[in-house]
Write a protein that binds this DNA or RNA. Structure first.
Length: 424
RNA sequence: GUCCCCAUCAUCUAGCGGCCUAGGAUACCGGGUUUUCAUCCCGGCGGCAGGGGUUCAAAUCCCCUUGGGGACACCA
């Protein structure tokens, strides 16, 4: 039975590196029909906070990384004490300056097999004796991790590369405790654009910050998975596909740079594929964020119009923030226009006729609008090309966007007419 | 400094001795489609860090150099 764990220390938010570690463990567990354990390593009382725990949990839930078992390391201190005592009794550890030290043999070397890195050898003399219990009675990470992983019968320890050098000490502890060794797999790090370890100074590193900025969780998962893992030439994956396809063999061994540009592209791919109802639901808070559009206006717009609007606009949106701002034209709010439209007298007369034609349409569908407008223009010898940009600017405030008639239809007759009148 | 790991286009990567005059994706640059933009389609740009071996054959195996990352706490 496969058992893996994600063991974050709650000293801050869940960052993208931790999220990827969690994801790989979770994918591995789900792929192998195993168990995924979430263990909060909150033994550092100074730095651990409840808020961090809540944040980590919220981030994991957002990503859809669910767990089968949940532990808090502080709740296990009795077991840690028991295990430490055992080592003391068996003279494998000794006391010095009030702390308990694990004895590392002076001679010899230790080789372990890493599923990703291959065989790695350390000489004992490089390890030196190390503290397992501090003089204040608390336990050190390298010790509790081993006791917990052994107790929880973790079969595969999949974690960041930065733990590679901890591994030999931990193996020594497994042996001292007479526990079976798990398989180790150390994932390459995620780097910032300057090729140093990803950190705050690289900008956004909090997973939930990406939710706030309008990314889809499945896009985040897809992107994180592709950072270090691959499956041939495929770039876009659903969650289920990732579970089906994920193996450690597909994981690379060199560090990867976090590329936000590609994240945007992947998010766009997932936005195009997502269920429209869900898109509308998720974009709502972004639309309401700046107070320009009220909840009442949103509800008044009606489901169909929101659905149609989202459908028209999502192809050119990288995030929900983008989509929300382009959906603003659907509401009866003043538009910020990219440029001022000034019509000639002749064009004004044409526009009068067009507005008149719009009034006669029975059902304000794109097809009907198109026919009415084209007819009105044709009768006056004006090409659509001659006026499309002006009308678009008046109606949407921007020179770019979906088809003019689609937009007119979804924005609605009254709003379109009043916006067109503004440029008369 | 010591130890550990890594090394294919700007970036993510395919490649696990011959299918490689190195494939895909993002980005970028052209073209097509469109009333515009985006999407979409087509095309282009661009890389095996360097040097030695091994082999009939090396991006792939070995060694060295260089470069990068990480670890060296009574933090996790």
């Amino acid at each position: 039975m496969t058992r893996v764990r994600f063991a974050p220390s709650p000293t801050g938010y869940l960052h993208v590196g931790g999220a990827r570690t969690a994801l790989f463990n979770w994918l591995f567990a789900r792929h192998n029909k195993g168990t995924f354990v979430l263990r909060i390593e909150d033994t550092d009382q100074e730095r651990s906070t409840e808020a961090s725990i809540e944040h980590i949990i919220e981030a994991m839930q957002w990503l859809g990384i669910n767990w089968d078992e949940y532990y808090r390391q502080t709740e296990r201190s009795k077991r840690h004490q028991q295990a430490a005592l055992e080592l003391m009794d068996r003279k494998l550890a000794y006391e010095h300056d009030g702390a308990w030290w694990f004895r590392v043999p002076e001679q010899g070397e230790l080789t372990f097999h890493d599923a990703l890195l291959g065989d790695i050898t350390f000489r004992h003399e490089q390890l030196k004796d190390f503290v397992i219990r501090r003089s204040d009675g608390s336990f050190v990470y390298n010790f509790v991790v081993v006791v917990d992983d052994a107790d929880m019968r973790i079969t595969h320890v999949i974690r960041g590369d930065d733990h590679t050098t901890n591994t030999p000490r931990q193996i020594l502890l497994y042996q001292a405790l007479e526990k079976p060794l798990p398989q180790f797999a150390h994932l390459p790090m995620i780097l910032g654009p300057d090729r140093t370890r990803l950190s705050k100074r690289h900008g956004v590193t909090s997973v939930l910050e990406y939710r706030r900025r309008g990314f889809l969780p499945e896009a985040m998962v897809n992107f994180l998975a592709r950072l270090g893992w691959s499956h041939g030439d495929q770039e876009v994956f659903t969650g289920d596909q990732l579970i089906e396809l994920f193996t450690l063999q597909g994981v690379g061994s060199s560090a990867a740079v976090f590329d936000e540009v590609k994240l945007h592209w992947i998010n766009q791919q997932h936005m195009k594929a997502a269920d429209l109802d869900r898109i509308v639901e998720l974009v709502k808070p972004f639309a309401l964020k700046d107070d320009l559009i009220t909840e009442a206006m949103w509800d008044q717009a009606g489901k169909d119009r929101l659905l149609t609007g989202a459908k028209l606009l999502r192809d050119r949106s990288k995030t929900f923030a983008d989509l929300a701002s382009s959906m603003r034209v659907l509401f009866p709010v003043p538009l910020e226009k990219e440029e001022n439209v000034v019509l000639s007298q002749q064009k004004k007369e044409v526009l009068q006729a067009v507005i008149g034609a719009l009034s006669t349409i029975e059902e304000f569908t794109p097809e009907n609008v198109q026919e009415a407008v084209r007819t009105a223009l044709k009768e006056r010898g004006v090409g659509l090309r001659d006026v499309a940009h002006d009308y678009r600017m008046a109606i949407t405030g921007t020179g770019v966007g979906p088809g003019l008639f689609d937009m007119m239809s979804v924005i609605g007759r009254d709003c379109v007419k009043s916006r067109l009148k503004e440029i008369l």
